[in-house]
Simulated assay, not measured.
Amino acid sequence: MLPIMEIENGIIEQIAAAKLPYLRLVSSYGGELMGDWQGVIRALPAVWVTFKDSTAPEPLNTASTRFRTRLAFTTIVADRSVRSEAATRKGGPGNVGTYQM
């Protein structure tokens, strides 16, 4: 089984490997949206990845030596537009919105 950190890093690497020209930051979420907004705004557009939760382990055999659990990860995508809230989501001429990311 892979540690949660390795899975999270793999998701980040896959997003970063796309080399999207408009994306400034792809990172693990560590509470950035709760702190310094000026730093967050300079990083936009950005994608943060974080572990959300897991299901209870289910035994796969009668000896209960193998288990299955489902892990859930969340991506937080943020963008900023000086035009309008809708332009942030949908984009506009020459600009990519969060829906398009």
Rank of each mutant, 00 (worst) to 15 (best):
81 S>Q: 07
68 R>E: 08
48 W>L: 02
33 L>P: 11
85 E>V: 13
86 A>R: 09
47 V>N: 14
83 R>N: 15
22 Y>I: 13
32 E>G: 11
78 A>Q: 04
43 A>L: 07
56 A>S: 10
74 T>E: 10
34 M>G: 03
27 S>Y: 08
47 V>C: 14
34 M>S: 03
78 A>W: 01
91 G>L: 03
30 G>L: 05
58 E>T: 04
40 V>H: 14
59 P>T: 03
39 G>E: 06
45 P>V: 02
15 I>K: 14
73 F>I: 03
29 Y>K: 07
77 V>W: 03
40 V>R: 13
41 I>L: 08
60 L>G: 15
43 A>Y: 00
57 P>V: 02
59 P>H: 06
14 Q>N: 12
76 I>E: 13
86 A>G: 11
60 L>N: 09
19 K>N: 14
76 I>K: 13
35 G>C: 03
49 V>F: 08
78 A>E: 02
27 S>T: 10
84 S>N: 15
36 D>W: 11
47 V>M: 12
42 R>C: 07
41 I>G: 00
28 S>M: 09
29 Y>L: 07
20 L>S: 02
32 E>N: 07
17 A>Q: 04
49 V>Y: 05
62 T>K: 08
18 A>I: 08
85 E>Y: 00
80 R>M: 15
64 S>G: 06
51 F>P: 02
69 T>E: 09
87 A>G: 12
24 R>T: 06
68 R>T: 01
64 S>W: 05
40 V>L: 09
88 T>E: 03
29 Y>T: 04
46 A>Q: 01
37 W>E: 00
82 V>N: 12
40 V>D: 01
38 Q>L: 08
57 P>L: 04
30 G>Y: 05
48 W>S: 03
85 E>N: 11
22 Y>K: 15
39 G>N: 02
35 G>M: 06
67 F>C: 00
64 S>K: 13
52 K>L: 09
67 F>I: 01
57 P>E: 07
43 A>C: 09
27 S>R: 13
29 Y>I: 07
40 V>F: 10
33 L>C: 09
22 Y>G: 05
52 K>T: 04
30 G>T: 07
61 N>W: 00
60 L>H: 08
24 R>S: 06
72 A>W: 09
66 R>H: 02
59 P>A: 02
90 K>C: 10
75 T>E: 06
56 A>H: 03
26 V>F: 07
18 A>T: 08
68 R>D: 05
12 I>Q: 06
12 I>N: 02
43 A>E: 06
54 S>W: 10
43 A>V: 06
66 R>G: 00
34 M>W: 04
41 I>T: 01
25 L>S: 07
51 F>M: 03
84 S>D: 15
24 R>E: 03
45 P>N: 02
68 R>Y: 08
67 F>T: 00
85 E>M: 08
59 P>E: 02
61 N>C: 12
38 Q>G: 11
36 D>E: 09
83 R>G: 13
49 V>C: 12
80 R>T: 05
64 S>A: 13
82 V>Q: 13
57 P>S: 06
89 R>M: 15
90 K>E: 12
53 D>S: 11
46 A>L: 01
23 L>G: 14
19 K>C: 08
88 T>Y: 01
52 K>Q: 11
58 E>Y: 05
28 S>D: 06
82 V>H: 14
72 A>G: 11
16 A>I: 10
78 A>V: 05
84 S>R: 13
29 Y>N: 10
